[in-house]
């Protein structure tokens, strides 16, 4: 990367189908401007996200990982996001424990009606990731 080039962090965003994924669609159809750094992966529910997905995204080169789903009380499967809240806290603590920058992992609740909030979450995340530079710690080494 030359010095003039701006570093663009790559974000993997695990979005629950019922809320955050719909929220991201709303941000799109409402033509809200936000950074194009996130690769969305739609999952049925945040409760279905294994911590392994987070590790795998970092392993394959994500600079940041976002998990986003329905607000507490709104989960389509009633308690999926309560379970996710626990599991994601544990993996977040573990990542920080081994010395990964806390700002590389983020979680949010974004409903289907919150297109603007989705755009804000992505904007903030990308802004927080930029100063950290590329994520090399958990990334699989390139085979030369």
């Amino acid at each position: 990367m030359s010095e003039q080039q701006v570093y663009e962090p790559r974000v993997v965003a695990f979005l629950c189908k019922w809320c955050s994924s719909a929220g991201s669609d709303l941000a799109g159809v409402s033509r809200i401007q936000y950074p194009a750094n996130a690769t969305p992966i739609t999952v049925p529910c945040t409760g279905a996200i294994s911590p392994m997905y987070i590790m795998s995204a970092f392993n394959k080169g994500a600079d940041g990982v976002l998990v986003s789903g329905c607000h507490i009380g709104d989960c389509h499967y009633i308690e999926g996001n309560y379970l996710a809240r626990r599991k994601m806290q544990l993996i977040m603590e573990l990542l920080e424990f081994i010395g990964v920058e806390p700002n590389r992992f983020r979680m949010s609740w974004v409903s289907a009606a919150e297109g603007a909030k989705f755009a804000q979450v992505i904007t903030d995340f990308v802004n927080d990731l930029k100063p950290l530079g590329p994520q090399e710690k958990l990334k699989k080494a390139e085979h030369s």
Partner: peptide, 17 residues
Amino acid sequence: VRSENITYLMTRAMHLA
């Protein structure tokens, strides 16, 4: 290698939580 060992050991820690 490091990246794969991390994924193994971190996943194992999660599975044992």
